[in-house]
Amino acid sequence: MNEKDVTRRDFLKLITNGLLTLSGLLGLGGIFRFLTYQTDPSPPTEFDLGPTTNYPDGSRTVLPRVPAVLLHTKDGYSALSLVCTHLGCTVNEDDSDGYVCPCHTSRFSANGSVVRGPADRPLRALRVEEHDDGRLWLYTA
């Protein structure tokens, strides 16, 4: 066995190991994409609320499918997410125009600010837009 043979064997060994590593990585890549596939599509972030005439001035409408509450005041339309900022339960309306979370009794005022913890952030304000065709759209994204 001369020196040339040794380098040749090393070279082949390198090639083999490289190819085996490559196929392993290819396989892992495929498996990663396979496992990260989401079967259920993401929930919608845009909601068609119907014609603005459904929401007269001064109205306060709970939209359970969002969940959110839509307010129509002198200043126009606004919306408040009803997802508690603590751990994500849906808050209920309480007796004093505010909201209370059924999970850990966080309380929020009518405009969404925290009245009592454990939540430490106000309810999220959501974007509402009136489109040219007279329909209201709500965006949660």
């Binding site: 090639i15 083999t16 190819l19």
Partner: peptide, 30 residues
């Protein structure tokens, strides 16, 4: 050693071929 390198090469080719076949499938439109 050469046959093993050769076989590893064939396996890589086969993997690339199946990845190519997968990429040729239409992008699902939900």
């Amino acid at each position: 050693k050469r046959t093993i390198s050769f076989a590893a090469g064939i396996l890589v080719l086969a993997l690339v071929f199946s990845a190519w076949a997968e990429a040729r499938r239409p992008q699902p439109m939900p």
